[in-house]
Design a protein around this nucleic acid. Structure first.
Lengths: 204, 204, 204, 204
DNA sequence: AATGAATGAGTATTCATTCAT
DNA sequence: AATGAATGAATACTCATTCAT
């Protein structure tokens, strides 16, 4: 193991297969079902092989977490840039980024689960502040600050408000993922309505 | 099992110990960590003894779920009645019941987890519509309908709006339970701010 | 327990229920499925109650064995007497008693299993020579002796021949019980053919 | 499991130890007593190790069953060829193959039990018609057909007669295995006498 | 680079049985 | 006469992991 350059190991094809298998198990069967042996079976390697690429199960899950973070941030940032390119005002920016948040969650349930729902104590080593969820949070805080400066929302403690917005977005996403039930209206309408309502509440 | 008198069994002290141990494990370590053996260890009885009181693990968890439902509903209804007694208008009723929801969750994290976060597929036998979470939902719909009639909130699809409110409350609660991080303001302020903001968004 | 007269205990209604439940479990699910708890469940008493009537599981099974013996012997003897009443000759007597043997087995699979197939080591305490199967065997030996004296079958070691006949009857019965498979002819024909053929082989 | 080379696994020494231990438990204590733990104890490995070689308990027993089938058939076929080489007539062929059947059973009680006595419902996956007992049965049917054509036994439904012969052989074997009791004559004499008598009954 | 071998600890559940009442 | 309480030992099976090769 020692003579292999870190780079090569990390970009190994098997390494990718491993975390893809883990992700798929996570998605289809839940965290409890992600076992080293099941991953190994899925990629048709021996369980031992996994230990060649990851120190232990936690490391696999952590990788998944990091990957999810990256993709999550990318999704938010891309929509932000699109908004900026379209010349949106601060309020509409908030709206579009909020929408991006929920879309990411519903489109990538396995990642959203890993990031925000499963209480991965075993992975809490990844300290909260390293974790990309807080980069996403900073992005949100920045957006709110801008909106305050533009005068389109109320003045107030930015962190408090950001957390409040996040709560609304998280609740929306996680109920969509876990408790769908019959509604006359579509999920899209629910998403739009909830975000709009909350932001209207914030507006001056 | 039929030969045992139900009454005596259900009021047994050990029975209580069992579900309390289960509840505590649930709270501290998550569903996956609730094992019959661990429960037994905690109450200092043999694992077999648990089977004297519950048919299997699912029965233990189901009991916990039912208990949580009952307490949750009671909490909401009590606050509703207090509000009614205090002669609150429809909007303030919504506010107070919303507050009760979040308070229940933060005060009873183990129950809130069982009810709304852990995806207890194994216990899904307790059909969704019997389950108290939907009684709570009906209570919310009724409150919204009243507020619409009083003209203090916008007109709209009651079910959609109820789900929207629930999303906000659930997000608030579950982030409080799982992701506390430093804020200048207190959790109480966050709760009040979030509920107020959302309801302001709903107001005419 | 001590103050109860043996007679009463043995004729108790619950005692009967217990062994009937055991018999039914034996029949429907096989020996491995006869458990004290299952018996108790079936009769709707507590498992402990069974120990009021039987020292342990072995005692229950032993009782079943004794009962099977009795019934088995009765079946053979009744047919013998009927044959005698009908004035059958020695060879026809052998035939009719042989038929009775197989009929008993196929009509009472649970008893036949207990008596001759399940290797109830735990019950082997009931010494072979007390066991009624040997009374049945004596009956067979007597029949053969009579047939020899009448000159309708070959002379020979009676015990050897009796064991030989028994082998044929047991094979017939136990394959009927455990390995039915498609045949153009009926089981009745198979039984008659096998007994006839064997006895023809014995005839002079 | 797919990632392990089948060849190496199947020829493993431990694999052999496992099934030998299982066979011995089967013989000495009956099917119900074959437990993974007991096998492990006997070979002085951990129970987990067994799962390295067999998917589950059923797989162990199935292997035993298949092995028994193979050996059983080989025993019958070998004697048949010897008979053919010796130029035996059809009736003597029946005799010698019958003898081979009983010899196999008494020489390999554990296999005979697995094949014809224990009711291995759990292993019934191995469909009856694949199973060697039916290949053995076909061999018997063929022998009878030949004997009919040679005119040395009565004409009749071959399947019925084959089943009848099988019954006799099975009864002989299984009583020899399970109920030995004092006789002046030897088991060999019993076997020869029973087979001869039955076949005499079949002769013209 | 990959894996076969091996395991200790754990999972839910069932069993026959004892004992005090 | 009947049972509630309790248990130690067993069941099949899964898990993450280590180690020598």
């Amino acid at each position: 193991m020692k003579h292999i350059k870190r780079r090569e190991r990390e970009s190994s094809e098997i390494r990718r297969k491993i975390i893809e298998a883990a992700r798929s198990l996570f998605l289809n069967q839940g965290y409890a079902e992600v076992s080293m042996r099941k991953i190994a079976d899925q990629i048709e390697y021996s369980p031992t092989t996994i230990y060649h690429y990851f120190a232990n199960k936690e490391a696999v899950v952590r990788e998944l977490l990091l990957e999810g973070n990256t993709l999550f941030l990318q999704a938010l940032q891309q929509r932000e840039q699109e908004g900026r390119a379209a010349g949106l005002n601060a309020l509409d920016m908030l709206k579009t980024v909020s929408d991006a948040y929920v879309r990411f969650g519903t489109a990538n349930p396995e990642y959203y689960n890993i990031l925000f729902i499963s209480n991965l104590e075993s992975v809490s080593l990844v300290s909260l502040f390293d974790s990309g969820r807080f980069k996403g949070f900073e992005l949100l805080e920045a957006g709110l600050k801008a909106a305050m400066e533009e005068g389109c929302i109320i003045q107030g403690d930015v962190r408090l408000i950001a957390r409040s917005v996040w709560s609304m977005l998280h609740g929306l996403t996680s109920l969509l993922l876990n408790f769908e039930f019959p509604m006359a209206k579509s999920n899209d309408e629910l998403i739009a309505f909830t975000i709009d309502t909350f932001l209207r509440g914030l507006s001056r």
